Computed example of a mutant assay.
Amino acid sequence: MEWSEFAEEMARLARHLLEQESTQATLDEIAAAAVKLVGGCDAAGILALHKGRAVTLAACGDVVEKSDRLQGELCEGPCFDAASRAGGERLFRIADLNEPQPEWSRFAPAARDLGIGSMMGFLLYTRQEDFGALNLYSYRAGAFTAESETAGWLLASHAAVALASARTVDQLEHALETRHAIGEAMGILRERHGLSEEAAFDALRRISQHHNVKLRDVAHSVLAEELGGS
Rank of each mutant, 00 (worst) to 15 (best):
E5C: 00
E5V: 12
M10G: 06
M10Q: 07
A11R: 15
R12M: 11
R12Q: 14
L13F: 09
A14R: 13
L18R: 07
E21M: 11
T26I: 10
L27V: 03
A31N: 08
A32T: 14
K36P: 00
V38G: 03
G39Q: 08
G39F: 11
D42N: 09
L49R: 04
L49F: 02
H50L: 08
K51D: 12
R53E: 01
A54K: 00
V55E: 00
V55T: 11
L57V: 04
C60M: 03
V63N: 09
V63L: 04
V63H: 07
E65Q: 13
E65Y: 10
S67I: 08
S67G: 09
S67A: 15
S67C: 10
R69Q: 10
R69F: 04
L70P: 06
L70H: 12
C75M: 00
C75T: 15
C79I: 13
D81L: 12
D81S: 15
A82T: 15
R85N: 03
A86V: 13
E89N: 09
F92P: 05
I94R: 04
D96F: 06
D96Q: 10
D96A: 11
L97I: 08
L97D: 07
E99F: 10
P100A: 06
Q101W: 13
Q101T: 15
E103H: 07
W104C: 11
S105K: 11
S105D: 11
R106L: 06
F107N: 02
F107S: 08
A108L: 09
A108M: 05
A111F: 06
A111D: 04
D113G: 11
G115I: 14
I116T: 13
G117D: 10
S118L: 12
S118D: 01
M119S: 07
M119V: 13
M120S: 07
G121W: 01
F122C: 04
F122A: 02
L123E: 04
T126C: 09
R127K: 15
R127T: 14
G132F: 05
Y139T: 15
A141I: 12
A141R: 13
G142S: 09
T145S: 13
T145E: 04
A146N: 07
A146C: 01
S148K: 00
E149W: 03
E149M: 03
W153Q: 04
A156E: 06
S157L: 02
H158E: 01
A159D: 04
V161T: 14
A166P: 05
R167P: 00
V169L: 12
V169P: 02
D170F: 12
L172H: 08
H174A: 15
H174R: 15
A175H: 14
E177G: 05
H180D: 00
A181R: 07
G183E: 04
G183S: 06
A185D: 14
G187A: 09
R190F: 00
E191F: 03
R192Y: 02
L195Y: 12
S196L: 01
E197P: 02
A199N: 01
A200N: 01
D202I: 04
A203C: 05
A203K: 13
L204D: 00
L204S: 01
R205M: 03
R206A: 13
I207V: 14
S208E: 03
Q209T: 10
K214I: 03
K214N: 14
L215S: 13
A219V: 10
H220I: 08
L227H: 14
L227F: 09
G228A: 03
G228K: 10
